[in-house]
Amino acid sequence: MDFYSFLIQLLNGVQYGLLLFLVASGLTLVFGIMGIINLAHGSFYMVGAYLAFSLAGLTGNLFTALPLGIGVSVLLGFALEWLFYRHLYARDHLYQVLMTYGLILVFEELRSIIWGDDVHGVAVPDLLSASLPLTDNLSYPVYRLAMSGVCLLIAGGLYGLIKKTRLGMMIRAGSSNREMAEALGVNIKRVYTVVFALGVALAAFAGMIAAPVSSVYPNMGAQVLIICFVVVVIGGIGSVWGALLAAILIGLTDTFGKVLLPDYAGMSTYILMALVLLWRPEGLFKR
């Protein structure tokens, strides 16, 4: 593999990893803080992609679709938490798995009713549709670079939110000792609602920006969900930084696996998970 091919795969791997991080960060936060195993998390990714498809069609541009889609997904998050998830915090994982699996079926059915079962595409915005020429016959799409950039910005924002703001301190305090946080006047239920809506919005946003490169199709959440659970387990449950590192590791392993060992590519990420868990059973970042 020459340098430029390597560079392209490296950028692809990092971009894929960062996208996974957006989805996995919400999954690990909701799992780590509220103790919810949320199988429906992949559905939020799918909802985001379909929202991008509809709203970009409606407004004519992905850029205008994004803020609208974020607004819709935050509202969806608040509604779902209020209607379903808050009743499950104290329940056994089995109930959580049953309900959230049920939600997957509901989301797929709604998707089929609203959007049908066809595969759709979303146009890359004109502003980002160019490619950067690397050699005479190799180039790299600007849109993918922009995706990575946006994901990094969001990762930075998430870091700031959790490490620097009082809301972040309350989130961490509540995850360590809920009763004590409440005794200090923290409305932990509202904190949970906000965290859940944030997780939904992150997953949906990932689906929105991924729509132009991955296209929009039924069941697209399922594959992402599985790989995101791998990310959460490798990173250490509840650790956002673990999720970031694990997501990039997975992105690179998957991308280079497909190039270097195409026959075994389907297994590469799971082999990585097995190795990490043999080395560190609690994941890279134990909480």
Binding site: M169, R172, A173, S175, S176, N177, E179, M180, A181, E182, A183, L184, G185, V186, N187, I188, K189, R287
Partner: peptide
């Protein structure tokens, strides 16, 4: 009332075992 509402009425608690947040 929820515990956080009672706390906000001016009640503070130093629990047995201290209840420090070790991750903060």
């Amino acid at each position: 009332a929820a515990p956080y509402r009672i706390a906000r009425l001016g009640l503070a608690y130093v629990p047995e075992g201290r209840g420090i947040f070790p991750n903060l």
